[in-house]
């Protein structure tokens, strides 16, 4: 049982939650994730660990309400418990001093997942730039957090309500045009964004590491649900990732696999709307 210590709504459907998980907090590093199951009949879902406090024994997670499980999670309050939190899973991001600028490109709630990696690159002595994207200003999250660990933070909004009007790729293009000496790009967010950024950096031969978010069951390499083709080889995101070379990922396959349960997800959601309050849960 893992107690929810605090929760905060960031945008209409995006939440920050602080959860007591001392064993995860003791060991986790940037780029790792947890599997979470809310109650006995719940599914296991992966969520990236955005921050942690080893001494206090908690971790921070960010999630968007996109399905039955995340909608249910959003209804839990501080003091409520989550049945299972397992981790830290996946390999830590490879962090080192690089000869040039590190750019974290974050989209939507993926920005939160990019935060610990940006911070780790900063701590390793690098120049760190963040490019954050959102549809509109009020959907932008974690800007202040990123400012605290980056040398520069740029924002792109689709409607121009804040920062540059356009996409994160436009801002990244601007940085390249201005001659920023970019050596490593770390896109994290919707797969289509990661794909576009990876395609953009390829002709510039800029190393691009993406943080993949696949459908998982156990999260420990046992089932292969999360498999993805990288450089023509099948890899497991949970046990071999979650970071991969964005230039080598088969994006179309990755994106179609994410939609595998589209029909069932809709069923689960309407079931949750009808019976949401009835789960024999932890409260």
């Amino acid at each position: 049982m893992h107690t929810i210590l605090s929760k905060k709504i960031l945008t209409e459907r995006t939440w920050h939650m602080r959860v007591a998980a001392p064993l995860v907090a003791r060991k986790c590093c940037a780029g790792q994730f947890i599997m979470l199951r809310i109650h006995e009949s719940g599914e296991r879902i992966p969520l990236t660990i955005a921050d942690w406090d080893r001494a206090a024994g908690f971790i921070d997670i960010y999630f968007q309400e996109i399905g039955a499980t995340t909608e249910l999670l959003a209804t839990l309050e501080p003091g409520d418990t989550i049945l299972d939190v397992v981790g830290p899973l996946g390999n830590p991001s490879h962090v080192e001093k690089i000869d040039g600028t590190f750019v974290m490109v974050g989209g939507g709630f993926g920005i939160a997942a990019g935060y610990p990696v940006a911070r780790a690159f900063k701590e390793a002595g690098n120049r760190v730039v963040a490019v954050l994207g959102a549809k509109t200003r009020k959907l932008l999250i974690c800007e202040e957090m990123l400012k605290s660990v980056c040398d520069e933070v740029y924002v792109a909004t689709n409607d121009g309500s804040y920062g540059t009007q356009g996409l994160v790729s436009d801002v990244l293009q601007g940085l390249l045009d201005e001659g920023e000496d970019i050596r490593l790009v770390y896109p994290v967010g919707p797969p289509i964004m990661m794909k576009i950024i990876s395609q953009m950096t390829l002709p510039h031969k800029i190393k691009t590491i993406v943080s993949l978010n696949s459908i998982m069951v156990d999260g420990t390499g046992m089932c292969g649900s999360c498999r993805v083709t990288v450089a023509g080889k099948t890899r497991f995101v949970c046990s071999e990732g979650i970071d991969f070379d964005g230039h080598e990922v088969n994006w179309d396959e990755m994106m179609s696999r994410q939609k595998m349960y589209g029909r069932q997800e809709a069923v689960a959601l309407s079931h949750h709307h009808e019976h949401g309050a009835c789960w024999g849960g932890a409260r």
Binding site: E43, Y261, A268
Partner: peptide, 16 residues
């Protein structure tokens, strides 16, 4: 999915 997560009971059990 079927044994551990009891998908046969979907959507009551939420693993599809």
């Amino acid at each position: 999915r079927c044994n551990l997560m009891k998908s046969h009971n979907f959507p009551g059990n939420s693993t599809p």
